[in-house]
Design a protein around this nucleic acid. Sequence first.
DNA 1: TCTCTAATTGACTGATTAGTCAGTTTACTG
DNA 2: CAGTAAACTGACTAATCAGTCAATTAGAGA
Lengths: 192, 192
Amino acid sequence: MKEQIKDKKTAIMESALKLFTERGFHGTSTAQISKEAGVATGTLFNYFPTKEDLINSLYFEVKGQLSQSMGKEIEAQSTFQDKLRKIWSNLIKWGVDNQEEFLFVGQFCSSPYITKFTREEVMKEYVFLHDLVNEGIKTGVIRDFSAELTIAMFYQASRTVVNLILDSDSSQDKNKFIEDGFKIIWKGLAKK
Amino acid sequence: MKEQIKDKKTAIMESALKLFTERGFHGTSTAQISKEAGVATGTLFNYFPTKEDLINSLYFEVKGQLSQSMGKEIEAQSTFQDKLRKIWSNLIKWGVDNQEEFLFVGQFCSSPYITKFTREEVMKEYVFLHDLVNEGIKTGVIRDFSAELTIAMFYQASRTVVNLILDSDSSQDKNKFIEDGFKIIWKGLAKK
DNA sequence: TCTCTAATTGACTGATTAGTCAGTTTACTG
DNA sequence: CAGTAAACTGACTAATCAGTCAATTAGAGA
C-alpha cells in the first residue's frame, strides 16, 4: 500500500505540474488535476488539504530537485571558476531537461502566491552557494559585491539563457548561448 | 463624454493592474475589478470584450510605458557606456517607481498567457535597443555576442536588481545594488 | 425643451469552482 | 477466513465565475 500511496500522490503532483504550466494556477481546477492523474477528486484532498497546499508542496519539491541538480559534481572541480562553470551548466541542463519544472518555478516566483517567508525558506537550500560565493570573495577570485546580489545575478542569468534556449529553434544556438552566457557573467563577477 | 470614457476605462485598467498583482489573473474576477473601479460589470465588458482582452491591453499599455521610460535622455549621453548606464538606471527607476506595473510584467511574462507572438510583437518597441547594441558591437565597444543574448542578459539583470531593491528594507542598499549591478553587467559585456 | 444616440447599469444565467462526506474498496493481520 | 483500518471514490453543495442584455441615464445638437 505504501507503493500505492506514492503512486497516486506523485501522479497528482505530476498532473498538477503539467496543467499549471499549461494553464496557470487558478486556470487549472482540482477536478482537472485529479482527472488527468486518473484519481478521484477526494483523493487529491486526502493528500493536499487545499489547492494552495498542493501548489506549495510542488514548489518545495521542485526547488529541492533543482538544488540537488545544481550541486552535482562540484567537488570534482579544482578551480573556483570551474566550480561556478559546473553550477552554471547544471542549472541550465536542469532547466532544459525539466522544462515544466523550470516554467513552474518561474511562474510561482512571479506570482502573488510566493511570500517573503517562502522565498527565504527555499533560500536555505542554497547555503552552499552562499558559502562558495563568500569563499570566492575572500580568496579574491571574484569581486567584492554583496553575496545576495552576486547569487541573484548569476542565478537569473542562467534562467535567461534557459529561456533563450527554449525559445530558439536551432539547437546549435543552444551551446553558443550557454558558452557566451557564462563568458558574460563570469567576466562580470571575476576580479581580473 | 470623451473625458468620461477615458476616466472609466483607465479606472478599470488601474484597478485590474492593482488586483492582478495582488491576487493573480484568474484569482481576480471581473466583478472585483469593476467594483474596485466603481463601475458596473457591464461597463468593463463594454471596453474589453473578454477578460483576456483586458489582460492583453494592460500588458501592451504597460510595456509601452516601460519602453518610453527606458529611452529617456539617452541622446544627451555622449559615450556608449553612458548611454547604457542611462538605460540601466531608467529601467530600474521605472521598476521601483511603478512597482505594480513591474510585477505585472513579470507575472505576465512567466504566465501561460504570453504567446511567442505577443513577445515578438512587444519586442518591436525595443528596436532602438537592438540598434544600439549592434552599434556597440560594430564599433568594438562591447563583445561580439548575439544581440538577443546581450539584450536579454542586460534587461533581466535590471529586473534582478529591482527585485532585490523591492525585497530590501534598507534604502542605502538601493543605490549600492544599482551601482554594483551595473558594474557587473557592464564588465561582462564590455570589450576591455 | 425635445430628441436621439451612446454610455452605463446590475440583476441574471449557465457553467464551473474548491472542498465535503457517506459509503465502498483494498490490503494487511491474526 | 474474518476483522479492521486506511485509502479511495464520486455525487453533491454553496459559492463564485465570465459574460449578457433589457432597461435606464446622460449629454449634445436642434
